[in-house]
Design a protein around this nucleic acid. Structure first.
Lengths: 201, 201
DNA sequence: AATTTTTGTTAACACTGTTAACAAAAGTAA
DNA sequence: TTACTTTTGTTAACAGTGTTAACAAAAATT
């Protein structure tokens, strides 16, 4: 009986079409002006059908948040694989992180900014752990090869991520769109300082 | 004729009472659930009176943002004055920044986070320039006394602020309330690395 | 005392997210 | 095919939001 399978397939397609319409909204007018009504309007269905597929609006945004972390994780892994030395990996990943933030502005804002972090549920985003896992492992490797292998890797990871997020978000507040290449010097400056603090004393 | 003066005084008081009611709302339920209606209810007036004193809701939040930057500037200046050596000043200011962020959580979220930074108007907050001015001048002094007086101070300032904001906001996303003292080691770690990058090669 | 200005209110508009009540279509069983 | 059940979708409403136009009341001015 392929009938049941067709049904769940259609359900998946419907869900995807909702997300697609929602994403269209997000990239054209920002996630703040995303509304259930506009989504319903776009897919030419009534409002409550959306609630058959998503518990609420937050669930839709959560979907994008997950997507964002998955994309970030993929990007980081890809970049990491292009190098051998942990220090080089950390530097390359920092630049990739920066590029991701500005190339996928909407994702980044959903993942971090936005003020509706739904702090409780943040830990339940396993895609986030994927991304952080890649960073942590690289930090660990860098520390292992350094002159101070007893260094607290979690502290260093936290520092690494904070520097990256800080640079990105300060830049985002001041300017919209991707900043010019000269602004990347700030990233280079901060991240090389960080790497030195690990590799050598 | 003290009559005109009384009027503007009353107007000021009214404005202040609006802000007070609003702030009460903010600290009890967060700025996201602040509403004009609740304010009107609290001050026992009808809704439109608020619009006689504030252009819109954003103007009210902007007021708090300014207040926040002013408080931050005051705090930084006060801490800075307790030290002589720029490097020590930078370190102390970093800790003061951290404490401010968590002691005045609501202010900090309005000042940076929140996703409604109203990017256009951000530059018009002169209180922000006051705060950044204090940091920049200290960075300049630190660079002047270093072995590399030709270092780009604006780049270093940007790095300094990014590290601080990054540390704070990452911490805020993961936990609510003030983090335990051990978490401050991360700040210590990052900021001492930064200071070394200025003072010595 | 009449008139203008300020101040405040009521009521509405145009939006939000969300849900209860109900109709229509689709699938199942006799 | 007919009767029944389940899924799917719609209409209409509730409870909110920011904002504003039209109007009444109070205060100040002439």
């Amino acid at each position: 009986m392929g009938i049941a399978e067709r049904k769940i397939r259609q359900k998946e397609e419907f869900k995807a079409s909702i997300l697609e319409a929602a994403w269209q909204q997000v990239i054209s007018d920002g996630w703040q002006s995303l509304s259930i009504r506009k989504i319903a309007d776009a897919i030419e269905y009534s409002i409550p059908v959306i609630y058959n597929h998503f518990e609420n609006k937050e669930a839709i945004l959560l979907e994008f948040t997950k997507e964002g972390f998955q994309k970030l994780a993929d990007t980081l892994q890809e970049v990491k694989d292009q190098y051998e030395v942990p220090a080089q990996q950390l530097e390359a990943m920092a630049h990739a992180y920066w590029d991701f933030a500005f190339d996928h502005n909407e994702y980044y804002q959903l993942m971090f900014g936005l003020g509706i972090p739904a702090c409780d549920r943040v830990k339940q985003i396993i895609e986030m752990k994927t991304a952080t896992g890649i960073m942590i492992s690289t930090i660990k490797e860098a520390i292992a090869q350094s002159n101070h292998p007893e260094t607290d890797y979690f502290l260093k990871y936290h520092t690494y991520l904070s520097i990256l997020h800080g640079l990105v978000s300060i830049q985002m507040i001041q300017k919209e769109g991707k900043p010019d290449a000269s602004k990347k010097m700030i990233l280079q400056d901060a991240i090389s300082g960080f790497i030195i603090s690990i590799t050598s004393k």
